[in-house]
């Protein structure tokens, strides 16, 4: 007989692992990815592949040669970052811009802070904002390339872009059912609200995330949108428009809920979500950019340590 193992309790472990959680996020992102490939064609698939390979490869290189420690790519967090990055840029984005984004995401936003679990900012969001500021032309080129469903390339602007340019008249008559199913234009992952919501439901069912952050973002965006709309319906769009357009869904479901860069407690998550929602609406209506979700998430990321200090889970017997 071999030597007996001895350790402190517990002697069992749940099947949960970092790898499994990350895999769940990837699975939850699949519907959105499939829809974007259907709409934008092989090139979109190529972008996703380039992004993932760049992120994973870079993490491997950094752990192996720079930090000289065991590689951490098996936890799949780099795959999630790569996939999110690809879904967060326009489908027309040149591949090398994505590679630069990947270098920023993994190299700067993640590994310089100490790798998974140590980063203050969500790598994919940080990279998206970095690209948006560095390559505004590529990042706001909303030409819709030919895909499997649309066979001709058309130039189009996002609904939010149209609104920023032409005011409320430019978006009049928007068909919401249409935006719910395939809101063409915008970042690659933002096409279908349904696909993103399917991912959200999957994450909730697998108990990967809790709904509070996402719901509080939606709630805040809706309420703030409603207020503005009630004040002046001639100038501001209605709350449904606010919710369904731009990166609200993608950001609130997949980026704001990133474990590392969101608060730990439920109430902290609500505060975090409300902050993101408010900032998003403010940036949209009063900022220089038509869309503000990524900025809002990035700004609120910085507040997470403070929120964690202020909000804690309810303790037993300490009422």
């Amino acid at each position: 007989m071999n030597k007996l193992l001895v350790s402190p309790s517990p002697h069992v472990h749940s099947p949960l692992s970092t790898q499994r959680l990350m895999l769940d996020v990837v699975i939850a992102l699949l519907p959105a990815t499939v829809v974007s490939v259907l709409f934008y064609g092989w090139r979109e698939l190529m972008l996703v592949a380039v992004s993932i390979v760049a992120c994973v490869g870079l993490e491997w290189l950094i752990t192996r040669f720079l930090l000289k420690r065991k590689s951490t790519i098996a936890d799949l967090s780099a795959v999630v970052t790569g996939l999110l990055l690809a879904l967060n840029v326009p489908p027309t984005c040149p591949w090398w811009v994505i590679v630069i984004g990947a270098i920023f995401a993994v190299g700067v936003a993640k590994m310089t802070f100490g790798g998974l679990g140590q980063n203050t900012f969500n790598p994919a969001i940080a990279a998206r904002v970095f690209l948006l500021v560095s390559f505004p032309a590529y990042m706001t080129d909303w030409t819709i390339p030919a895909g499997f469903i649309h066979t001709d390339a058309v130039s189009g602007a996002t609904l939010l872009g149209k609104y920023a340019e032409g005011g409320i008249e430019a978006i009049q008559g928007t068909d919401y059912l249409h935006t719910l199913l395939f809101n063409i234009g915008g970042s690659a992952g933002e096409i279908s609200a349904i696909a993103l919501l399917a991912g959200f439901v999957y994450l909730l069912c697998r108990r990967v995330i809790k709904p509070w952050i996402t719901l509080s973002i939606w709630g805040t965006v809706a309420v703030a949108g409603l207020l503005f709309w009630l004040i002046n319906p001639g100038q501001y769009p209605d709350p449904v428009f606010c919710l369904l357009t731009g990166g609200v869904l993608l950001g609130s479901i997949f980026m704001a809920t990133d474990y590392v860069t969101s608060p730990m407690s439920d109430w902290g998550g609500v505060v975090f979500g409300v902050g993101i929602g408010l900032l998003t609406v403010l940036i949209r209506y009063f900022g220089a950019y038509p869309e503000g979700v990524s900025f809002a998430i990035l700004i609120m990321n910085a507040f997470v340590p403070l929120i964690n200090k202020a909000f804690h889970q309810k303790k037993y017997g300490r009422a």
């Binding site: 071999n2 030597k3 001895v6 350790s7 402190p8």
Partner: peptide, 22 residues
């Protein structure tokens, strides 16, 4: 010689609190 295999956190403190050693 070792008579069992310690599988807990590798610090003497935890090990000493748990048992007489491996």
């Amino acid at each position: 010689p070792k008579v069992n295999e310690y599988d807990g956190l590798a610090t003497c403190r935890v090990k000493a609190a748990l048992y007489s050693g491996d």
